[in-house]
Amino acid sequence: MKLLYFAWLRSRIGVAEEEVAPPAEVATVAQLIAWLATRSPGHAAAFANPKLIRAAVNQDYADVGHAVRASDEVAFFPPVTGGRGP
C-alpha cells in the first residue's frame, strides 16, 4: 500500500510517502489510521486527532469507513485550504 502525507502530517511523520504492508484486519481508513499511529512517535503525533485529518483513496476523497486494499494509494492531509480569502 502506498501512503502519501501532506502539509503538517508530512512534517510530523518526516516523510512525504512510504510503502506499508498493514495486517489483514486493517480494512478501512479508520483502521489504517489507528494502525499507523502505532508505527513511530512521529506517526503518533500526526494521527493523534483523526478529526483533523482527511483522506483520499486512489485520489478521491474518502471517509473513515472507506475500504482500503494493498494495491491502493492512500493519502492523508489536513482539510484543504485552497483559500483563506476575503
Binding site: A7, F77, T81, G82, R84
Partner: peptide, 11 residues
Amino acid sequence: WLKTQAPFWKL
C-alpha cells in the same frame, strides 16, 4: 468550490 475541494495546503 476550489477553496474547499481542491487539494491545496498553504504554509
